[in-house]
Design a protein around this nucleic acid. Structure first.
Lengths: 335, 335
DNA sequence: CCCCAATTTGCACGCGCGTGCAAATATTTC
DNA sequence: GAAATATTTGCACGCGCGTGCAAATTGGGG
């Protein structure tokens, strides 16, 4: 019930239960070789003393921590909160703990990786946007990572496992939709250039449009996945144009950008969405479904992806673990 | 540069540098007693071999992990993302790592706490909403927590350290503002009952109104800090009323609720904010400033609070560590 | 160049548990 | 009920580093 000592160890429990220390630890391990009644006796004593196994020591001894580091930096994008929820849920419900590392700024990616490696995590997951391949290469060559997983983003780095939506397929579906609905003057709004490069959404869209209409659609890029900044960037872009030169649809690399666009279209330019200009996003963040935005967007199968990630953690394979997922277009009223 | 061996230990570096293992570890410790030139020699060798100290072993040996657990459950509230950013930033920039624990559901609070204790974290921080005092009491009596911190929420539990905004002062400021601006038929929209009880915002507001106008304002509560659910609850409430019985302002326990309200007021009831009904929130989430909401709200000094939290972690005091902060009202157009 | 104080380095022991095997029990078979 | 097999239990050693102190080294004054 109560424990007066600062820390109760397996030895204390062993003494109380009249067994050896090893038997105590066995009792706490899932399918260990131990008789039911010994286990119960041990558990009772443990309960009494308030003992729980020390995972630090277990990790040290077994060189397996059941801990992953999650590196993230893009806190202005509301989608990140959804990703955090899905990932931590999948991980925790299957016995994995998560070390959340805030990559404070671009220069901090290296130190953040180092930080993770010092905790000897079993895997490092990147869901941020600021890392580039040189950092990954350096990290890998230092051989400090058992597994380096890029989540929700593809990567060309061969030492990395990428778990992401099939951006090409998704973008084609979006482009197809845009075309079918009769839009002819799209403006593509991309995120930070380095990140966009990983996504290939912009390129895929442009290519599609080029193929079908023989023109490259206008494209601008926002320096962060931040609704406010997206609004600002769009405002600057449109302010330099005649009303007739406005696009009929803004295709956004993700919802964070799309939401910022809708806000300024309505409140700065006094336009209606989709009547005057339509908007389409990517991710299907919670707000996208609100009566205020009714955003047409593309939903990634995050839960499935998160579960696959845990499969990867628990797998011994070291190759061909990359996987692309298919999501689906959620059509609402914004486009 | 490259390391062929699976793991390089301090012994390897010691051998390479021609010193003892202890000297190697000393070289990595901030103000350890070591001569500059020995340290450099060691560091060079470490660099060469790709060695970094193993924090698991260090934690085990010193019984100090520089790790805190952060328990969270309220992922529908966008403010949580802001809190995560501020907390992880403050923690990491001062050398602390964060274990993010998703409290999967109400029954999971106990297991989540257990989880943290098995990692022997130096402190556990609660920023979720589902915990109740019985769980905290149980956790404390098991003496498994060096420090149990409730962040952004007050707590009556004496074994707990609460770092929060002064809700009474904040709510009074809000109430004062509501009164001064001439609103006379407020509707108070509270969050889940158990959480509201911790905040005392509802009670403070009611008391204020009772004192000044001798009536208790209408109050309804939403079962989660979820914009969509808030909208739904408000819709049900207003649908049962005549147009004349509508409130002139909706005072929300936080921005998540306020945003949900604004959405349905506009899009379901076709009302204007603030002309027909005003709305006021709490937290100042990023969206609150968007041209779409222009939400009047109360901003907590999160950065300051996060830094104080780290002070608490680094303090040896065990008493009187609770602290209340003052924020300020951010007036925009919604009220 | 010697002596004493200040600085720097080395070390025994322990942190709590995992691994793999050998010893001790329990269970089955005929 | 004895022998053979299956199950359960105990243990030596190691995981990588911290603590506190003792030994070794350095530097400066006379």
């Amino acid at each position: 019930m109560t424990g007066l000592n600062e820390s109760i160890t397996a030895d204390d429990v062993a003494r109380a239960a009249g067994v050896s220390r090893w038997t105590v630890n066995r009792a706490f391990k899932k399918d260990a070789s131990i008789s039911p009644k010994t286990r119960e006796k041990v558990m009772r004593a443990a309960e009494e003393l308030g003992y729980v196994p020390d995972l630090r020591a277990a990790a040290l001894a077994s060189d397996r921590s059941n801990l992953v580091a999650l590196l993230i930096d893009d806190f202005t994008n509301p989608h990140k909160l959804v990703m955090l929820e899905r990932l931590t849920r999948a991980l925790r419900s299957r016995g994995w703990d998560t070390l959340l590392v805030n990559t404070l700024n671009r220069e901090d990616t290296g130190p953040a990786l180092l930080n993770a490696s010092q905790r000897r995590v079993d895997a490092t997951i990147l869901i941020g946007i600021q890392f580039d391949d040189s950092v990954l290469a350096a990290a890998h060559s230092a051989r400090r990572f058992k597994k380096l997983i890029i989540f929700a983003r593809t990567s060309e780095n061969p030492n990395t496992i990428s778990i992401a939506v099939d951006d090409a397929a998704a973008t084609k579906e979006i482009a197809e939709y845009v075309m079918t609905r009769g839009y002819r003057r799209p403006l593509y709004l991309a995120g930070p250039r380095t990140v966009s490069a990983h996504l290939m959404r912009k390129e895929t869209f442009q290519e599609f449009w080029q193929t079908h209409f023989n023109v490259t659609p206008d494209t601008i890029s926002v320096e962060a996945y931040d609704p406010a900044l997206a609004g600002q960037t769009l405002t600057e872009e449109l302010s330099g144009r005649e009303r007739e030169a406005y696009p009929d649809i803004i295709v956004c690399e993700n919802d964070a950008l799309a939401i910022g666009c809708i806000d300024v279209l309505r409140h700065h330019f006094d336009l209606q969405v989709p009547r005057d200009i339509a908007v389409i996003g990517f991710d299907d963040v919670p707000q996208a479904g609100s009566p205020n935005y009714r955003l047409t967007t593309y939903r990634q199968p995050l839960t499935e992806m998160a579960n696959y990630l845990v499969d990867v953690l628990e797998s011994d394979e070291t190759t061909k673990l990359d996987k692309k997922f298919l999501g689906h277009l959620v059509t609402r009223e914004s486009a």
